[in-house]
Nucleic acid binder design. Structure first.
Lengths: 231, 231
DNA sequence: CGGGTCATTATGTCTAGACATAATAATCAA
DNA sequence: TTGATTATTATGTCTAGACATAATGACCCG
């Protein structure tokens, strides 16, 4: 009896309500005896279940079935090129605009970019890119990039996506990601061939390095895009 | 040196590009010797990193830094009541409609609900609900429910949300969840006080029990909704 | 040269036992 | 009664060693 089997057994008992939500389940030692295995193996299985939000564990208090199973799901953060090619389509990238300028206030605030008073104080590199699948617009990317992370001379962003260059060359430490539904902004709609205000799925991502912000990206996906995962 | 410290050390080496993307990192035994700890501890740390997509491990081939760090993120599947109350707002629920009828074909197909030919063959319970935060529409819920999972007499869905009743009373086994941006359907827009066609964030969820489908839900969130998580 | 077999190797898992840690309960003192 | 101290207990982690398993490469044979 391996730890996966233990995990599945415990999970099925929870799902069959042998152990109801909120109830205390037997301790590791008891389960180890019942299954005739070592406690460490039970621990491995229960740690796994705790991580997925099915149970809650507290020292001394024991393990109980989560009352409100705020189940946790995991998904892979999409890498556009892989996504397009995974559908068997040809991937291409088109650089619309590349310029050095002051980022808008909301971007600067999100990234923690230096301000002087109410003014944004330094310039960032702004890239506007269109990702194409079989020639059709797949996603629109607006990116602000900390120029300090770039080597001199700069990489050629008409050839490689900024994302792929960054993951291969810039160490980063933390980040966050958010998804929302929004009306397509006029410039984005024009670039993607949509009606302005059309509902689009937007991914917004911030990443930071050891000391300094790295980049802020806003990906606008073509209509019909779904982010999907198994529970 | 605990396993978390090992994990962080390895991660920082990867992020500092001491071990570049695609490169092979030292084996568990070597790391154990370097850190002066047991191999099992190194294994725990590396297993963790593999799970979050930072490294890829193969027996005999060793461990290498993920080339395309398709980083994995986890998020908690929102439970609306908790979400509203977590913002310090008052939660209320309003049942708009409750009826037994044949589900539309797309719902039946997604759930694997029995068909006879091109016809949907049995009836499900359909619930249309509005979730309110401080009296304002927060989310609109359209749900199709397998009546076989319900006891007789049926729970009072004007008092408790179907979701909360289900998680507390119906064992389930698997499910999936998808997010998308869509124009608000006319009935939904009317119920939520939005302009028809306004961009809305939609969550669609299917769950199955041991043998039979349990429920299909479509949650339409009020504008401004963001699904957010840390990488 | 092609294909099958076997040895090698790094990861994957398990065990028994030990100690650490957090949280609660019981106890004792002011 | 209240507050501080101590004991208890379930989980969390670590160790050393063992065996399992998957993938690779070397070898051998037809």
């Amino acid at each position: 009896m391996g730890w996966e089997e233990v995990r599945d057994t415990v999970l099925s008992r929870i799902r069959a309500r042998i152990w109801a939500p909120g109830a205390l389940i037997p301790g590791e030692e008891a389960l180890a005896v019942e299954f005739g295995i070592a406690r460490a193996t039970v621990n491995r299985a229960l740690t796994e279940l705790a991580r997925s939000g099915v149970i809650e564990r507290k020292r001394r208090a024991g393990t109980r079935v989560a009352a409100l199973p705020i189940r946790r799901a995991t998904f892979d953060i999409p890498v556009i090129r892989a996504e397009v090619q995974g559908r068997g389509q040809a991937y291409a990238i088109r650089l619309i605009r590349q310029e050095q300028s002051r980022p808008p206030l909301d971007v600067a605030l999100r990234l923690g970019w230096p301000l002087s008073g109410a003014e944004v104080s330094g310039a960032m590199l702004c890239l506007e890119t269109l990702h194409l699948a079989d020639g059709a617009p797949f996603a629109h990317e607006l990116r602000w990039l900390n120029p300090a992370v770039l080597p001199d001379p700069r990489p050629d962003f008409t050839a490689i996506s900024a994302n792929e260059w960054l993951v291969a060359h810039v160490p980063f430490v933390t980040g966050d990601i958010a998804f929302s539904a929004e009306p397509a902004a006029p410039e984005v709609a024009a670039a993607m061939g949509l009606a302005p205000g059309a509902p689009v799925f937007v991914t917004e991502r911030c990443t930071w390095g050891e000391r300094a912000p790295v980049t802020w990206v806003r990906l606008t996906h073509a209509p019909g895009y779904r982010l999907q995962t198994v529970i």
